[in-house]
């Protein structure tokens, strides 16, 4: 088989994932796109491993590691998304702009106050 086929497929899949990461609004869809990017890399690694006939099977080993890493990332990523959702009722990435350092004065105070109220509410709940 021509090595070009898996290599080009991997490259295209990577870029499709890349597009998804940049264009999707829901953060879970962004996570999915990241998975696509990682899978593209896996395809690359497997194809190269087979082509190279690597005695150490470095490519396949790294593929396994990547799959595991991806699974771990999905796990922790989802819990972060859920946390964000719980705190603000949305999982849209482009609405997460509280941390921006506003150039104009005043708005940052608002976010600061918002934060303090959250803390206070937290404290009351704890009391």
């Amino acid at each position: 088989m021509h090595l070009v086929y898996p290599a080009v497929l991997a490259a295209l899949l990577f870029c499709v994932g890349l597009y998804g990461v940049l264009a999707r609004r829901n953060s879970i869809l962004v996570l999915m796109s990241v998975e696509l990017m990682l899978n593209a890399v896996n395809l690359n690694l497997v194809a190269f491993d087979v082509w190279l006939r690597d005695a150490l099977h470095g490519g396949q080993a790294l593929t396994l590691f990547t799959i595991t890493i991806a699974a771990a990332e999905i796990g922790i990523g989802l819990s972060i998304v859920l946390l964000v959702f719980r705190n603000r009722g949305t999982a849209d990435v482009d609405r997460l702009t509280d941390l921006v350092d506003s150039l104009a004065h005043g708005t940052d105070n608002a976010s600061d106050d918002g934060r303090d109220t959250v803390r206070n509410a937290d404290g009351k709940a704890a009391a």
Partner: peptide
Amino acid sequence: GTVVRRAQTGNVQTYLSALL
């Protein structure tokens, strides 16, 4: 500095676009 700070939009997808 203004330019750099303006680039810091807070939108993570802008960040990622710049990264990629």
